[in-house]
Computed example of a mutant assay.
Amino acid sequence: MSMEAAPWLVLGLVIGGLFKSLIPTAFLHKHLTQPGLASIIKAAILGIPLPLCSCGVIPAAIGLRQAGASKPATTSFLVSTPETGVDSISISYAMMGPFMTIIRPVAALFSALFTGLLVMLFAGEESPQQAKQKQSASPSCCASSAEKSQQEAPPQGILKSAWDGIYYAFSDLYPSILKWLVIGLLFAAAVQAFVAEDWLLQWGDSWLVMFMMLLIGIPMYVCATGSTPIAAGFLMAGISPGAVLVYLLAGPATNIATLGVVREQMGNKTMWLYLLGIIGSALFMGVLVNVFASQFEINSQINHSHEFMPYILQLLSLLLLVWVALMPLFNKAIKKDQSSCCD
């Protein structure tokens, strides 16, 4: 799981850093920080085509948030991005047919809009003073140093800004979410190890299987692309398209890592609204799809190849992430040795 997640996490870190360094703050304030539905819609549309999984979207969303996006817009982006992407859409067509290919991004858009609207109506938004106090009080937050550098940095070229953003992503953004990423991957691995897929197939198209899909999908780490072969297997085994869609929405958009980061960055109330929005929209779209799916013959051709990333790219990405995570420990040990020698 770590191997499969590593390339997407690296990509997410890069995008998060570029969001912070290249997108003008004025642009974000204009399109994503204003109250109302418009910023939620723009954030959802911005996230749909990006090929980021639930692991990789975390740094991208935090970078967007720290660049000035509102809570509703950030949660909308955080929902729509992992639920679908250009890569998962193409694989959906190959493995599940045109019906699920069309309904999947539509359902992701609805889920993002519904969740963002819940946050807008019931969570509110921090004032700039509250946000600064929260960032200064949290030692793990990576916003403070980035905010300082953004205020002090003179105008510079695009390439220099891009490099500064990437450096910021791996030096500040990655350490701030590392704890939850590790916890989420370990928990998801335990779920996948001890919950058999055959256990779900016995209930077919009942309501119970939708709730089972939620219980399995919410804590699980699974990418939109990686979830497609599993979903195709569920369809072939007789589970209803609506229940499969619940899995496709809840699985990529929620896991322990995502919920933990949302809670830490935007508050406990926003986390529960985020979870409620995904659950409610997934069940609603699942029921709606079952109503219309009876009019279509859904044929899927299963492709048993689950390797969508070259092995060498997965390995190099994982080694990079491990090296970046361990570098502070190495630097601390070196400084300790040097101080001991000097003493």
Rank of each mutant, 00 (worst) to 15 (best):
Pro229Met: 15
Phe284Arg: 07
Gly242Cys: 13
Phe234Gln: 15
Leu283Asn: 02
Pro229Cys: 11
Ile230Pro: 00
Arg263Gly: 06
Phe234Glu: 14
Met271His: 08
Val244Met: 11
Ile256Val: 12
Asn268Leu: 11
Arg263Ala: 12
Glu264Cys: 01
Val261Trp: 00
Asn255Lys: 10
Gly286Thr: 03
Leu259Asn: 13
Gly233Val: 08
Val287Gln: 05
Gly238Ala: 15
Val262Ile: 15
Gln265Ser: 06
Ser240Trp: 05
Ile230Cys: 11
Ala282Lys: 03
Ala282His: 02
Pro241Cys: 10
Trp272Tyr: 13
Met285Pro: 01
Met266Val: 07
Leu245Cys: 09
Gly260Glu: 02
Ser281Pro: 12
Met236Thr: 14
Val244Tyr: 01
Pro229Lys: 13
Ala237Tyr: 08
Gly251Thr: 10
Gln265Lys: 13
Val244Phe: 05
Gly280Glu: 00
Leu235Thr: 14
Ile279Thr: 02
Met285Ser: 07
Thr228Cys: 11
Trp272Val: 07
Ala253Met: 12
Leu283Pro: 00
Ile239Tyr: 06
Gly277Val: 13
Ala232Arg: 11
Met285Thr: 12
Leu276Pro: 07
Tyr274Ser: 00
Glu264Ser: 09
Ala237Asn: 05
Thr254Phe: 09
Gly267Glu: 11
Ala257Leu: 12
Gly277Pro: 06
Ile230Gln: 09
Gly286Ser: 08
Ala250Asp: 07
Ala282Ile: 05
Gly226Leu: 12
Gly242Ala: 13
Lys269His: 13
Ser240Leu: 08
Thr270Lys: 12
Trp272His: 12
Ala282Pro: 02
Gly242Asn: 10
Ser240Asp: 05
Leu235Asn: 09
Arg263Leu: 08
Leu275Gln: 02
Leu235Gly: 08
Thr258Phe: 10
Asn268Cys: 04
Leu259Trp: 00
Gly260Asn: 04
Leu248Ile: 12
Val261Lys: 01
Val287Gly: 01
Trp272Asp: 09
Leu276Ala: 15
Gly286Asn: 03
Gly226Ala: 14
Gly280Met: 02
Gly226Cys: 11
Tyr247Phe: 15
Leu275Thr: 06
Gly260Asp: 04
Tyr247Cys: 01
Ala253Val: 15
Gly280Tyr: 00
Ser227Met: 04
Asn255Gly: 12
Gly238Val: 15
Pro252Ile: 14
Ala253Lys: 01
Ala232Gly: 15
Val262Asn: 04
Thr258Met: 14
Ala237Arg: 04
Leu273Lys: 06
Leu273Ile: 13
Leu259Met: 15
Asn268Met: 10
Leu248Ser: 09
Val244Glu: 03
Val246Asp: 01
Thr270Trp: 04
Gly286Glu: 01
Ser281Leu: 05
Val246Tyr: 03
Ile239Arg: 12
Tyr274His: 11
Ser227Trp: 10
Gly280Arg: 00
Leu235Tyr: 09
Asn255Asp: 11
Ile279Cys: 03
Thr254Ala: 10
Pro229Asp: 12
Ala231Lys: 10
Leu248Phe: 07
Leu276Glu: 01
Ala237His: 07
Ala232Asp: 08
Pro229Glu: 11
Gly267Thr: 03
Met271Ile: 04
Thr228Gln: 14
Gly238Pro: 05
